[in-house]
């Protein structure tokens, strides 16, 4: 049974349709790489899934519960956000908080955890991304790669069912990409369910088990990773793969 199922998700911004009917099914343990050219709607899709953006129509099933994408209560939003985590391209760490406080804030203020328990949970999460020794630093004192690992720890701390990554390495200097991908790969090996928007083809090939290729607001092709790269069905997928290889 799928953990997350999206049916006919549609979204327009200023009269232009950005998502033109997305159907998607994610099984527990899936690591789905979302590929596609700039403007395909990848970010918008992820943001609709945890209600950072409100879709116009469609629904999703999450752990067997059905949610309309455009009509939704506060409790439903809270339910989805409790079960998901989001890692942004630009990390979006809270700049006025230490590394530790970045992770604990969502646990204490968001999940009403006790301070001690939150600190313990946060330190465990930081340890898993190799940032426990920088708990007292401020985001500005860290490299991009370190900031992104903290952001992953912040998402991980609440033990989400599924983690959304929106181009987690796109803002990084090339030499820092590896450390972040290594953390994501570790999570994949642990069986975390993840949807990863990425331009890292090696990652999509070797870490993800599925590829979702999007263009112009639609899912053009969905396939097992090896198949997608070895033998893409759609012309647009082929063009995309070629254009990436050409770079």
């Amino acid at each position: 049974m799928s953990l997350l199922e999206v049916v006919d998700l549609r979204k327009s911004i200023d009269g232009t349709e950005i998502l033109k009917g997305i159907d998607l099914s994610i099984i527990k343990g899936d690591v789905a790489a979302v590929l596609g050219p700039s403007g395909a709607g990848k970010t918008t899709l992820l943001k609709c899934l945890n209600y950072l953006e409100k879709a116009d129509s469609g629904y999703m099933k999450f752990e067997g519960e059905t949610f309309g994408m455009n009509r939704i209560t506060r409790e439903q939003i809270a339910f989805v956000r409790r079960k998901t985590a989001f890692v942004f391209q630009n990390y979006n760490l809270f700049l006025n908080k230490t590394v530790l406080a970045n992770v604990t804030l969502g646990l204490t203020a968001g999940l009403k955890m006790k301070k001690d328990a939150a600190v313990k949970t946060a330190m465990e999460a930081l340890d898993r991304v190799g940032m426990a020794d920088r708990a007292d630093s401020y985001p500005n004192q860290l490299s991009g790669g370190q900031q992104q690992r903290v952001a992953i720890a912040r998402g991980l701390a609440s033990d989400p069912e599924i983690i959304f990554f929106d181009e987690p390495t796109s803002a990084l200097d090339p030499e820092l990409i590896g450390e972040v991908l290594a953390v994501i790969k570790k999570l994949a090996d642990e069986g975390r369910t993840m949807i990863v928007v990425t331009h890292e083809m090696d990652f999509a090939k070797n870490v993800s088990n599925r590829v979702i290729f999007m263009d112009e607001g639609r899912i053009i092709e969905e396939a097992v990773s090896e198949k997608f790269f070895a033998n893409p069905k759609e012309q647009r997928s082929r063009d995309f793969i070629n254009s990436i290889i050409a770079k």
């Binding site: 956000r81 809270f94 700049l95």
Partner: peptide, 10 residues
């Protein structure tokens, strides 16, 4: 940072 705040359930 606001979006990140919402994502951690603030």
């Amino acid at each position: 940072q606001l979006e990140a705040g919402y994502c951690v359930r603030l």
